[in-house]
Design a binder for these strands. Structure first.
Lengths: 202, 202
DNA sequence: TGCATAAGTTTCTCCTGTAAACATGGAGGG
DNA sequence: CCCTCCATGTTTACAGGAGAAACTTATGCA
């Protein structure tokens, strides 16, 4: 009855279909030339149909970004709950999960941090982003409580980590971590430097 | 004779005029909705004129990015040559100069690190970017020689610094350094954490 | 003097975003 | 059980952008 049958109803639940198609396109095209019309075309509906579900193109983009933050959060949570012994190892795992996520979904990741995904417009998007950021904060707080991380203001740690990881992700995506300049394994190397500043090393 | 008189010649040296107009637009519009046609319009020529000087829209964008890297390099050099006593202070100055540059020219900075400015296509752009990156490398090497910075592989330091500074710049531009999450002065706080890992602290 | 050519302009095609008018079919009231 | 309304589609229309091609000028040079 309520089974998925491709286009059950009037046309099906287009909203979901459009999001899925767009997500697929983001994954496939690293060129990132997003077009509402092509999303509609690939979904098999007229080019005006999407406007019944999204006020404009950017509203769809924001929804994609929101889902991206949720997925990123899941990746982070999963990486951190792998039962790694030290906080430091957990942090490295989370950072690498984030950068891995970015490299596997460059279009989506770029979108999530682009001006198109304006967090001041869409509270849901804002919440999703903050929730994901909160995962990082949680890790840092736990690390401070158990003495792994230094007891400076957690906001300083957070800014440093957030910037570092996001910076590495962006540079990795844009192929700007050239081996000639930055070594063969820049991500762990950079994280080590940061962690040396974060961890208690007495 | 060869004085600038707005439109001296056939029409003047359009190339330069287009670049200047585009640069002004980048500085004014934070919205970053770049159109070749509007650049042409604002420069007072037909919409097809730019194609006599730039193969396509992206070629102009790449030239803008190239100039941006040169300017950023100048900012960095200036910040570093302010006669600051310690390497650490010099690094902070350079980092803040970079982030300040980004905040004052968000459109340009975003362009410089966007997919539109594809460094694999344009060797001149690639060289400009590498040259600017080289300024950072130079600072790190000097700091290692005089014992300020730890003697790990300089490429690890470079990756960490590059990512950190670029990450902070991008987050700052995108208004994602929210005080509630990241404190009131996230930039120096984050740099301090990083520097604690970079510097010899024995 | 006169022509080849760089540099601009017009015109054209194809694409996009978005609005408005129109169509349709399923759900709910009589 | 039918009829009507509305959500969800489609068609059509319009403004703008990228870029190609054909046309026009004025300059530098033979």
């Amino acid at each position: 009855m309520s089974e998925i049958k491709d286009r059950p109803y009037h046309h099906g639940n287009l909203r979901r279909a459009l999001i899925d198609t767009a997500m697929d396109m983001l994954a496939a095209d690293q060129n990132w030339a997003f077009t509402l019309r092509e999303v509609a075309r690939r979904t098999g509906v007229s080019h005006a149909a999407p406007y019944k579900h999204f006020r404009d193109r950017e509203m769809l983009l924001r929804e994609l970004a929101r889902i991206g933050f949720i997925r990123l959060g899941e990746s982070l949570t999963e990486a951190m709950s792998a039962g790694l012994p030290s906080m430091r190892a957990q942090f490295v795992a989370a950072a690498q999960a984030c950068i891995g996520f970015a490299c596997q979904n460059p279009g989506l990741y770029r979108l999530m941090f682009s001006a198109d995904a304006d967090k001041t417009i869409d509270p849901h998007l804002h919440d999703a982003a903050m929730s994901t950021f909160g995962i990082l904060l949680g890790l840092l707080e736990r690390g401070q409580r158990d003495g792994s991380f230094r007891s400076v203001a957690v906001s300083a740690l957070a800014a440093a980590c957030w910037a570092q990881v996001h910076g590495l992700a962006m540079l990795a995506i844009n192929n700007q971590l050239l081996e000639e300049k930055v070594g063969s394994a820049p991500v762990p190397a950079a994280l080590d430097v940061l962690l040396d500043g974060m961890c208690r090393n007495d």
